[in-house]
Structures are given as C-alpha cells and as structure tokens.
Amino acid sequence: MSPMEKAIGQTYQSTGHLAKLLPSGTVLSFQLLAPTLAKQGHCCDMNRMLTGGLVMLCALSCFVLSFTDSFRDEEGKVRYGFATFKGLWVLDGGATLDPLAAVGYRVRFIDFVHAIFSSMIFIVIAVFDQNVVSCFYPVASEDMKQLLTTLPIVIGVIGSMLFVSFPTTRHGIGSPLSLH
C-alpha cells in the first residue's frame, strides 16, 4: 500500500471508532424531545427544569451505555450485557457466557474515560442546540456566545483524539458486532 492509501485507511478506521462511540441514539432522542420541552426556546421556569432534566438524563444514558457490550452465543444470536468488575453481566437471563470468556469483558479504566468523554460530548451537543441556548440564555452576552462557539470544537477535538488514540473494544447496544 502507498502512504496515501495507508493514511486514507487509517482515517476511515478512526472515523469508524468515532461512530461507535458517539451516542447517536441518545442524540436522536434529545433532538426529538428538546424543541418541545424547551418550547422552541421561549421557556418558563418549568421548561428550563424539564430541558435541564432531559440533558442530564441523556448524559447519564451516554455514561451508562459506555459500559454495555455484546457477544454471540452458541447459536449465533447477539446477546447484550453490562461490563462489571468481575466480567460481563448478561442482560438476557436465558443466555450464559463462559466464566473465562466473561472475564475478558471486565471494566477497565479506559471505559470510565470513554464514558466521561461521551457524556461531555453529548452535553456539548445539547448546549449547542439553539432551542436550549435560547431557553437558558435568551439574551446571551458576547462572552457566552464565544464560549458556546468554542467549547464544542475544543471538546470535540479532545474527545476525537482520545477515542482514536485509545479505541475501545466494546460493542455496546446498537453498535455493530462482527460476524467473526
């Protein structure tokens, strides 16, 4: 392979790692509910509470989903579970995972780093949403506008570098699982 082909291949591989880690289902849910809860940016106190609760609930979802994983059972069916300090806790009680294989799914330090950055990236996406901005800051100062413009880029770049440099092997709920 030429250096250019290697670089393109690495770019696609890195993009694949990012696609696995970004909370697309949570973001979709947020984008569906936020305009209604934020009342198109024309909020009262109740709307601010509901919108803030939605942001926190979705950020928590991003954090928790970072610890999900999947495997194929003996029949080839995909099974899901949560990574624990002892191994994988299978959600489907009918399926079992060999105890030696389950140990390979233990929680690692990098899982917490990925969970934190995944939540941070979601919060940045949420705060960048125009309905949320208008709800919480109807008249934003120049400093706030600058922060809302810069923060998503900075967090996105740092998170992307982290996810690409330290990829996860987890195949969480909704992530594709290879046939092998």
Rank of each mutant, 00 (worst) to 15 (best):
C44L: 15
T84S: 10
E74R: 14
V133Y: 02
V107F: 07
A19W: 06
G53F: 00
K86M: 10
H171S: 13
A126T: 00
S134I: 15
I110A: 09
Y80Q: 05
V164T: 08
C44R: 15
F63Y: 02
I155D: 09
A101L: 10
L33F: 10
A34S: 12
R170T: 03
C58A: 08
E5Q: 15
L18F: 06
L50G: 07
K39R: 14
G76C: 08
V107R: 12
L97I: 01
I158Y: 11
G94T: 08
S70E: 02
M56L: 14
C44W: 15
V103G: 08
V133A: 12
F67H: 00
V64G: 00
A95M: 08
Q13S: 11
F30R: 01
L162G: 03
F82K: 05
D45V: 15
M144R: 10
L177M: 00
E75Q: 12
S70Q: 06
A7P: 06
R79E: 00
S61A: 06
G81S: 10
A140N: 09
E142V: 15
P35V: 11
F166S: 09
S134V: 14
R106A: 06
C135D: 03
P35G: 05
S175G: 09
L100S: 05
I125D: 01
Y80E: 07
E142S: 11
I116T: 06
C58T: 08
L177K: 01
L28W: 03
F166M: 13
G174H: 06
P99T: 06
L18I: 04
T15A: 08
F71K: 05
M49G: 11
G9F: 11
P99S: 13
G94I: 08
L57A: 13
R79A: 00
T51E: 05
I123S: 08
L65D: 05
Y105L: 02
S66V: 05
G81Q: 10
A59I: 00
C58E: 02
R170Y: 03
T84V: 02
Y137I: 12
T68V: 01
P23F: 01
L177Y: 02
L97S: 04
C62S: 09
T168F: 00
I116K: 04
A126L: 04
G52T: 03
I158L: 14
P23H: 03
Q13T: 15
I125H: 02
S119C: 09
I173Q: 02
S14F: 01
N131M: 11
V78I: 10
D92E: 08
S165L: 10
A7E: 12
Y105N: 01
S2I: 01
G52K: 04
S178G: 13
L22N: 10
G16M: 09
L100H: 07
L60C: 04
G87A: 05
V164E: 09
L148H: 07
G104A: 03
G172Y: 02
V157E: 02
L28Q: 11
G104H: 07
A102D: 00
I173M: 04
V78F: 01
H180L: 13
V103A: 13
R170F: 01
G52D: 03
T26E: 06
F30S: 04
G174S: 04
G76I: 04
E5L: 15
L32D: 08
I155T: 08
I173K: 05
E5G: 08
A83N: 11
A83S: 13
I8T: 09
T11M: 11
P99V: 02
N47F: 04
Y105G: 02
H180E: 13
D45R: 14
G94K: 10
A95K: 03
G93M: 15
